[in-house]
Amino acid sequence: MADLETPARNNEGFLENAHEWTPEVASMIAEADQISLGEKHWEIIEFLRIFYSKHEMSPPSNRLFVKAVKEALGEDRGNSIYLMQLFPGTPAKTACRIAGLPRPTNCL
């Protein structure tokens, strides 16, 4: 489908233009990472997008991502194992990439 082409992304897979993000785009970015988005993923994606609109920044590091999720959604979700399972690799980086946010500044 020509109209569902993934928008331009940078060398680390983050969207060049944040306005091009849609839930469909999120699914495509996730698929490229071999992640199939379920309800648990969407809860975190939605959290991140609200976080960005309030604070105009991505959580700068993995630790602060975990802290912010814990603050908003409780300890069940705000722990690194849970987030690692949903968003493998560096969870903050993977999740922000899928959520259409800028790259966390302190994630190597």
Binding site: K54, H55, M57, A68, E71, A72
Partner: peptide
């Protein structure tokens, strides 16, 4: 916005 960035301080 510095105001918005700063409002994340308590969360972190």
């Amino acid at each position: 916005s510095i105001e918005k960035n700063l409002s994340a301080a308590p969360i972190f």
